[in-house]
Design a protein around this nucleic acid. Sequence first.
DNA 1: TGCAACAATACCCACAGGGTATCGGCGTTG
DNA 2: CAACGCCGATACCCTGTGGGTATTGTTGCA
Lengths: 278, 278
Amino acid sequence: MRYFVAVAEELHFGRAATRLHMSQPPLSRAIKQLEADIGALLFTRSPVGVTLTPVGTVLLDEARALLDHADRVRVRVSAAAGVATLTVGILGDGTDPGVARLAAAYRRDHPGVDIRIRDTDLTDPTCGLRAGLVDIALTRAPFDETALTVRALRTDPVGVVLRADDPLARRDRLRLADLSDRRWFQFPQGTDPLWQSYWNGGRPRAGPAVRAVQECLQAVLWSGTVGLAPLGHDLPAELAVVPLIDMAPSRVVAVWNEGDTNPLIRSFVEIAITAYRH
Amino acid sequence: MRYFVAVAEELHFGRAATRLHMSQPPLSRAIKQLEADIGALLFTRSPVGVTLTPVGTVLLDEARALLDHADRVRVRVSAAAGVATLTVGILGDGTDPGVARLAAAYRRDHPGVDIRIRDTDLTDPTCGLRAGLVDIALTRAPFDETALTVRALRTDPVGVVLRADDPLARRDRLRLADLSDRRWFQFPQGTDPLWQSYWNGGRPRAGPAVRAVQECLQAVLWSGTVGLAPLGHDLPAELAVVPLIDMAPSRVVAVWNEGDTNPLIRSFVEIAITAYRH
DNA sequence: TGCAACAATACCCACAGGGTATCGGCGTTG
DNA sequence: CAACGCCGATACCCTGTGGGTATTGTTGCA
């Protein structure tokens, strides 16, 4: 299940394998075996890329829910066994090494606490905070903040992601008006409106609906849409990012449920604040 | 998880192993490893018997729910892949070979259908029919039949289960009145009232609350309570069963949700009827 | 003080699931 | 248009998990 979700989110066997800390051939074999067990193909493989079949789409939702459930069982049973757990939600693929160092620092200071990192896709900036999937989220504003406590950590300037061969990609800065005739990728309906509107620059020119970082990049690469991203992340060579000068910078924040009195949250936020103020 | 649930339900490593179609030592080792992973003991082992620790009790509920969830994922994904599934609920430990033969007969007649047998504990005579855990239940009356369709299959005379050294165990038949001074085991609160009242002969003299067949037998063996059971099942040598002559016989029935138009249900019921009319 | 019951231990074996090296098919490019 | 590069599939190896049998250890019980 974890293997399948990784491939479905990356839409790329090689990348999924590195994310799972394993090599590509056993991953291919495992997926093949899963497909044999189910009796249907889960992915369409083509050299241009991997996509989900209808059966795969069904399984992706089910598998995510099942893995969430299993995680909650672990937390509850650990709690019954007297081991405190703090679940931290982060947005997108957890390749950001900053979070790993943060977690390591926290583990050093609180040896008895079991700290878990939970990646979420881009459709919920609160990382499932309201649903109880995480205790605290390290994420980006803006989103509906009712019943949540938000603490600012950092701001990042924002740029537009384009194909490297796009005429605009050679400019050293852009305005939103320069992109008025472009199609923007959207998030699926049901996504927080503030979030949705921020990341498509307030434009309703709907392109494909994406859920994950890799899907965003693929949307730009394949269907020629444009999308926004915070600066300072590495991109594949076929993509370029150009700073936007009339866009409010992206605020990195820590969020937790307003009434949550778990003392581990406070101490984690303290460590996060000092870590982000480098 | 499946191993743990089996041991927790049988409260006996050897029996759990046979139920899991494996031998006892690897099962012991697997549980030990699970306990190491969790960081707490799940069972208290003593030669007089195995009991759940508080952590084990928590895990039992969680593990049951998680296994149910996983089962439903399998069914839904199979459905998306075009494979029809029929889930049959049966009560108690599925050691009854009759059900296995029934399932085999059905598989022969309907090769494309994936038929699953799901054991349930004794606290829900409908085997989770209303919750959608099963499509059809082979179980025993009586229970609340609203919104359910019930089809009679057979009746079994009922007897009382006693310790073999109980004075009453030597009698060749008993009346309910002979047991008026005994404590009866109960089912946990929330259990269907009709069901509960039938199996304790209408007596409210509460003994321990049990969930599974093995717990019933242990309750009789250890705490000296009495309980009813249909005749014709083998019991351990320390227990005896004496026919009750003033007790309505137990009705074996097939049940399904009233509005369920799944044609597989009808055909399964047909096969069940002919199989039970031997 | 044996004896019976039952979980734990010791030890063995097979295969699932990991790894590396390589192939094949299909775009891209000079 | 041929050579190359990307990426998933295949071939093959090797370790460790998870199954098995035989035996021990402990504890009530006769």
